[in-house]
Each structure stands twice: as structure tokens, then as C-alpha cells.
Design a binder for these strands. Structure first.
Lengths: 208, 208, 208, 208
DNA sequence: ACATAACCGAGACGGTACGTCCAGTCTTCCC
DNA sequence: GGGAAGACTGGACGTACCGTCTCGGTTATGT
């Protein structure tokens, strides 16, 4: 005699359009390329996506959240192919990261949302979840692979290993971002070699 | 009966108020602390400074330029006191830099203007002149002092020395910025010691 | 082999909920009292009535039609009890009309739908059928009763009688509406006596 | 040594555009004719007037106030030319009033603002000041002229005279409005003759 | 019994206007 | 000519409703 609420979704009413989300994110990236962060307007994004402004506001709280989601997916391209040595692996992933950061849609947007996030804790959390933490895995994978190869000794204790991973992540990501956006110089092969040498030398010295 | 143009500038008419500039910049910093970058409006700054909006636009092209000038002066606090060793010097300056970056007015403004500068070359130049290059001298000074102390060998050739200085600068500034704004973790004594060890180890390995 | 249309309505499928109609009209009157015409929204009416917006639009074309129906029923209260003389009959019905017009739901709605009806012929027709013509019968009844009493001579010709009835109707209804809504003065006993005297005096003079 | 604030206007700053007001009111009347009250939007009016929306909101609180001002001027056309007799004077002014009320911009707007005014006391006051009371003078002038001609006896006491004037005003204005907008019948010569006869007969009977 | 068809609630949809805010400019009078 | 005041055009904001639609699901009739 139970009440029949056997709907698969549970929620009544018209379901949200499945295609709209991706259309909006794609339109956002397109608008970022053309207009940059500060001239991007949600009305324009809605028009490009063929969607009403209300639909957009129903799904995202504002420009910041929308842009984080639109850009986040680009960073998922990052991989860590095995290039035979720790140095080569690092150089490869740093170059990949620099290439993503050099795209106009990320270049203009990433710093802007980080700037906003200094006064907006939920946004900071969203950035961390959507972008930052997803890439930290690369550091951990690289370390694990280097240990398997015997290039690095096994981590002495987990706590110290985590702190080192965080440090490497801040150094590597920070250096590439600073070089690209602040110094406005290219992250080319030579720079990457120099940076990698510095980083590996430092790691060896620190653990030796 | 001719008009005496004894004004020091030679320009006719009332000279610009000397005090207004500093009042505006101070009002800008105050507004940055209270409102953050994105909610700061020029009208509000003008009101706080007791100045007409016209005056403000006569002296700065827009929000970006104004904020760069308002924040730049804060970075002039950076010094490089002699602490006896290269490591101590680095730790000291990194901590100073982190302290400046932790202030609400810089935290909210710096990434924002950098973000804007990705699409605005004159702004990028202004940031470089007002903020970035003033820090870079610290790297050069530190290197020179370390050479005098014998901690580092003399630069083999100028070109390579400049590239290394740039690299160190991007790594150090980038790491601190990333740690502070993206990872949102404190730049405390331990982190600075770890970072300095990494950096010096890397430098030694690279030059050895 | 013909289809049996033994249903009372003839239409197959689930019949419309009988209770919904009255719930909606009651909710409309309630919303009119609270919000007035211009802030009344159909979504709000639907919510108050515990009904989906779809249901509402299935039965009424829009706000205007709904409000006409909601208010029309209030005018059915108007009666013409025999008070012994034409003057007393007129005074009675004018007071009744004024009382209905003083209710907040009619006050805010009636002029609004009349305003809309100036650009919407079907709405004008609906108002006439639902509201206006129901009042006009009172004029005709009053005249007939006065003739039976001998207070007025029999109508000389039907065409003239109809024109006079229309005139009386416009004068009486118009005066009460104008007094109530435009002059915003009360239609009290004294005003009604003065008005009735004017009207009856005019009628006597015109027919004499 | 007094502060010199010898500006003629007294207020500092750029003065309001003198031409904008009339352009906006004219655009409002034009839009009323084309769109009617309910489809008239302030954005559209601003565009027609060649003015920014903010300018419009700076000067009027909303649609209601704007429309009252736009329409009020039309009623100032009403005059009371001397046609030789009280009856002729009344017929003349009633026809004028009906003609104004038949214009699309008044027809659609007047009832709408009256409807709104039922829930908005300041608006009611504005209507009274801008439109209603300005026309009440016609009743008083007509009475005075009729007294000079000897058609009506001098008012016995001022209080009663004022009440009679109010009554006449409500009856006349109300009847014309009702005939035009509710009954939707033309106010033609015959109707006006009948109405005037009724009114004058009633007045004579009441004062006799 | 079971299909058919109109009903129902909920709520997302594209669209339009709202009234506000700010940018950057212009116009006035004053110093 | 600089400066304070404030009105100006223009454009985006985020919200509220409109009237439509698309779901899952209900309730009648008709075979």
C-alpha cells in the first residue's frame, strides 16, 4: 500500500536540458577568447549559447562560477606520459601546463577568478576542487614513478612527503604562471630545462 | 598689462592639487580593503578622496592604472638587509614579500590587474615598471652580495647570469604568490626554510 | 458502428476539476485585495489556489479575463428591493452599487480591466456580458416598477425609452464610479439624496 | 567675508536638460497611442525621446507618474467659450471633454492610472492636482456666468454651492467617461442634448 | 481489463522589461 | 585652466513574470 513515487529522477517537473550545460560552457570559452574576462557578459554568453539568461542564472551563481567550470575542463587534458626519466617527465608536464596557460581563454580567466577568490571562500573552494587539486595528482604520480625507477628514495614519512609535494606544486605551478603572465616571457624548451634542473637539484640536495 | 606666466610649470591656469594625488591613492587602498577589486568603483574612490570624478579621470586612464599606482608603493617597503648568509637573506626577503602579499589590498588587487594586463600591453608595462622590476633588483643585489661573501662563484657570463636571475625571480615570486593566493596556505617560517633549501640546493647543483 | 457519446460532456478523457475553478477565482480576489491589479501575477494566483499555472492558462486566456470573472460574481449581489417609491428604490440601489465598488478587490480591478478593454474588443464584450449588462437590467426594472406605481408615464416609444435608460445608466454608474475612484469621496446618504433628487428632477423636466 | 554662492540657480553641477522633459512627455503620448498603457515600457519611451533610461528615472518615479504628466496637458485645452446660454455652454464643454477622452492616448491611459491610484495615495493626489481639480474650475465658471445671465439664482450659501458643484462635476465627468469607456458608445450631439436637459432640469428642480 | 485521451502538479524553458548601478563624458559655476 | 558638482548617454546587471513546454502521473470514457 505504499505511495507510488517510482519516478527515476525523483524530481517532478520538466528536467533540465542536458545539452544546455555544454553549450553554455563552450559559449563561455568562446566569449573569453574574444572579449576577455572583464568584457564578458552573461547576457552575451546566453545569446551565444542560444539560451535564455534565466537558464544560465538557474545553474550558476555568477560569472566567477561559470568561468571556473568553463575553464576547468581544459586542465583535464594534462597527462604524465612516461618519458623514461624524472627530468623528462617533469619537462613534459611543465610544457603541457604552459601550453594550456598560454591559451587566451585560460590566460585571461584564471588570474581573474583567483583574484576574485581572495574575497570569496566558496569560489576558492570551487577553484581548488575543479582545477587545483585535480592537477596535484601529477606531482604524486611523478614521484611514485620516479621511486619505481629508483631515481628517488622512498618517502621517509608521509607527512613530510605531502609537504614536499605541496611545495613542488606551488613552485612549479607558480613559476610557470609567473613566467607566463607576469614576466610575459615564453616558457620554451630552454627555460623548462633550466627550471627542471633547478627543481631536481634542489630536491636531491634537500633529501640528500 | 600682459599676463605674467611666472608659474613654475609654464602652463597657464590653476595647477593641479598636489595633495589630491595621494588622497586618491589612499582612498583607493581603503576601498580595496573594504570592497575588493571587483566592487571598487571610481565614483566611490572620488567621494572618499573628497575629489570630483573628473579630477580622477584627468589623472588616470581607468581603474586598472589607478590601482596599480595605489598598490605599487606598498612594494617599495621591500628591502634586503644583510643577515649574514645567502640563505638568511632569501628567507628574509621571501617573508617580507609574503607579508605584503597577505595584505588585503594587495591580495585582491594584484592578481586582478595581472589578469587585466593579459589583454592590455600598456598596463602590462606599467605593472612591470611600477611593481615587478622593483623586486627583480632584489635578486640581483642578493646575488652580488653572495658573490662578495664567496657563497656563489662569479657569474661565468652575463647572459647566463641574467637568465638565471629571471628564473629565480619567477620561481620565488611565483611560488609565494601561488602558495598565498591559489593554495591559500600560509607562508610561514617552515615553508620558507623548505623553499629556500630547495632553491639554494638547485642553484648549487645547477652551477656545480 | 457509431461511437457512443453517452458522456454528459461528450468529450473523452479526464474532466476538468470542478472545484479548481472556484478556488482560482477566490484566490484571484484574495490576491487582488492584497496586491492590487498591477502586482497580481498569475503564478501567484496559481500557487494560492493550489493549482498549476498550466491549469489556469487552460481555462483563461490571461489576467484580464480571469479578473473579470473573479469580480463579476460580486455584482450579482445587486438587487432592487421594493422600497415604496422610485426615489427610495434609486437611493437603495445606488448605495448598494457604491458599497460593492468600495470593496478593495473591485476598486482596484474594475478600472484596470476597463482600461485594458479600450484596446481589446473581446475583453470589452466579456465585461459587458459579465458585469455591465447585469446592472442595466436594474434600470429597466426600476422604470417598469415606477410605471406600475404611476410615478412615471408609460414610455412614449420604445426607441426613446431605451435611449433614456442608457442615459440614466451612464449617469448613475458614472457618477458613483467617479465619486468613488476619482474624487475619492464617500458615497454617503447625503450625496445619494442629492444625486437622486437631481436625477429625478431631470427626468421629470425632460419628460414633462 | 561671506561665502560667495551667487549662482542664479543655487544648485551646483550641470543643470538638467530643459528640452528633455518635453521630449519625454511627447514620446510617452506617442507610445501610448501605439502601444497602449499596458505594453508601454519606460525603456521604449526613453529610446523614442532620445534619452537614457536613467534620465527618465531621475525625473519621474515610475510609469504612473510619467503618464499622468504626459496626459495632463491635454486636458488643459478645455475652455468655456460663451455660447449665449447655460445649456449651450454645458453642451460645448461636454463635447470638448468627450473629444479629449476619445483620443487614444487618453482613452487608454486615464482609467489605468485611476486604477493604480486606488492603491497609491500620492498618485491619487497627483492626478487630482494635475487633472481633476484643474477642470473643476469649468463648473464654477459656468455657474458664475449663468448667474450673471440670470439663468440661475445666486448661491444661497457657499457650502451648499460647493457640494452642488462637486456633484455636477462627478455627474458630468462620470457620465461622459462611462459612456465613452464602459458603454463604448459615442458621445454625439443627441446624447449631449439629452444629458444637458437632464442635468439642467435636475438643477432647476433641486433649487426650485 | 485496458487502451485512449484529456487532465493535473511541477518546474525548466526562451523571452521581455524591470529598476539599479557604474563607466566615462559634458556642462555649469567657482577659484 | 583646474576643480567640485552633478546631469548626461550607454550598457550590463540580476530579478521577476510571462506564456509555453515537457515531464511523470491520474482519472475519466469506451470498447
Amino acid at each position: 500500500m505504499q505511495s507510488r513515487t517510482s519516478s527515476p529522477t525523483g524530481r517532478p517537473g520538466r528536467p533540465r536540458s542536458a545539452t544546455a550545460d555544454e553549450a553554455i560552457l563552450e559559449a563561455t570559452r568562446e566569449a573569453l577568447v574574444e572579449l576577455g574576462w572583464s568584457k564578458l557578459t552573461l547576457g552575451d554568453v546566453a545569446t551565444r549559447a542560444g539560451v535564455a539568461k534565466t537558464t544560465l542564472y538557474r545553474r550558476w551563481a555568477g560569472k566567477n562560477e561559470l568561468v571556473v567550470d568553463a575553464v576547468a575542463v581544459l586542465f583535464d587534458e594534462l597527462e604524465l606520459p612516461d618519458r623514461g626519466s624524472l627530468a623528462a617527465d617533469i619537462e613534459g608536464v611543465v610544457l603541457q601546463f604552459a601550453a594550456i596557460l598560454d591559451r587566451p581563454e585560460t590566460k585571461t580567466a584564471l588570474m581573474a577568478v583567483v583574484a576574485e577568490s581572495t574575497r570569496d571562500a566558496p569560489l576558492r573552494e570551487r577553484i581548488r576542487n575543479s582545477i587545483v587539486d585535480r592537477q596535484k595528482r601529477l606531482v604524486l604520480e611523478g614521484r611514485a614513478r620516479a621511486e619505481r625507477r629508483g631515481e628517488l628514495p622512498a618517502a621517509p614519512d608521509p607527512r613530510s612527503a605531502a609537504a614536499t609535494a605541496d611545495l613542488i606544486f606551488d613552485v612549479a605551478a607558480g613559476a610557470v604562471v609567473h613566467r607566463t603572465l607576469v614576466s610575459a616571457e615564453p616558457v620554451d624548451g630552454e627555460w623548462v630545462r633550466r627550471f627542471t634542473a633547478l627543481l631536481l637539484g634542489g630536491l636531491a640536495a634537500a633529501s640528500g
